[in-house]
Nucleic acid binder design. Structure first.
Lengths: 201, 201
DNA sequence: GCTAGCCCATGACATTTGTCATCGAAAGAC
DNA sequence: GTCTTTCGATGACAAATGTCATGGGCTAGC
């Protein structure tokens, strides 16, 4: 019997996925978490065999949870499911020790199969996502550029970004200009869109 | 027995919800659709009692499907489930004849209960969403302002927006300025964010 | 020890954006 | 028939943004 921890902030989806996994004879959902923090404390207490984690959750996101889990509970294999599969997310997830990565567009038996695969030590990444990730290449942005671009994502003026990043306005504009150049965008807002699409921020 | 049509582009979610609804004795999922078009043709062929439709789908979106359904099949009650419950979406959905509106954060038995409620002629809107929708008020944007703001959402410069909207650049800037004022934003990009958050665009 | 790359900053410049006043045409409300 | 609103446009001005050159401090690689 494979013991599973399920983490997803959407109650309906979580419950539904649990119902679905429960249909399999060899799978058992032993815990359901609605946030990253909950997932971690439940995992520590119950030590599941496999953790199925949603990528986007309020608070601690899926990749961070996966990283902590790989560190603290090496016996617990982690996999990510997500609605928005960006190349960058996949890379970060793999770097965090995630063994499986699936978009939510896959069918139910793929999910069950992948749970079994990674439980027995294998890995599985959605083929289409894998192809995109390979062709996409790494992020050209330096850490600081990514930071600043992220702050710019909300549409804040340079002044505010500068305050929030504790930088001078001129420096912010330099970073943004550089990010715009690297993404091939016409302005910072298009740069944000492109970086988002690639999962760079 | 209540016969249900399920439409959601995410295979896993759709299958999981179907598994969950199948656990109820009086509910039966008779069709599953991955797109709006599919949902419509399946509904015409099978005439379900209740259609449970995801708001965001590729191609025809949930509200449009609901509108067509209410026109063509008055016997079929429709309800919307969604990950992103914006006040504006709720209003558009109700205007389209939708009887139930739920975020995906609700629990499974709420879903089943609401299916039964709307099947017996009732209505159900998530209380929190309802409160937001009421306090939010209607969109203050004129149709044209909303158009232009939508084009601006991709981060394109005024020149391009003007070309795509067949307007003069000056006019575009006037509309944007007006939209910025109405949303209380500091610039057009924040205006886009706000309007998105309210479901105005 | 040199070099390269990232980090942070300043100053100068051209371009883009945001704002405002003003105008005319068309449509709907009263 | 007049009033109001929306749509569309122009011109002008101030403010924000994008770009570039330049410089110094720091770290890592060779």
């Amino acid at each position: 019997m494979i013991r599973i921890l399920l983490a997803d902030d959407e109650h309906l989806i979580r419950g539904a996925m649990a119902a679905l996994l429960a249909l399999e004879d060899d799978l058992e959902v032993v815990a359901q978490a609605a946030t990253g923090e909950q997932a971690l404390s439940m995992a520590r207490a119950l030590r599941p065999d496999v953790a199925v984690i949603d990528l986007q959750m309020p608070g601690v996101d899926g990749v961070s949870v996966a990283r902590t889990l790989t560190d603290e509970l090496p016996g617990c294999r982690t996999m990510i499911v997500t609605s928005h599969g960006r190349p960058g997310h996949l890379k970060r997830a793999l770097a965090a020790g995630v063994r499986g990565f699936l978009p939510k567009t896959v069918s139910a038996d793929v999910l069950a199969t992948v749970v079994r695969t990674i439980h027995s030590g294998g890995r599985y990444v959605d083929p289409q996502l894998a192809a995109e990730a390979i062709s996409a290449g790494d992020s050209p942005l330096t850490p600081r550029e990514a930071d600043v671009l992220e702050l710019a994502a909300e549409g804040a003026p340079v002044e505010e970004i500068a305050r929030r990043a504790a930088l001078s306005p001129g420096t912010v504009r330099n970073y943004l200009s550089s990010a715009v150049g690297k993404t091939g965008a016409a302005n910072r807002h298009e740069a944000v869109r492109i970086a988002r699409g690639q999962g760079w921020i």
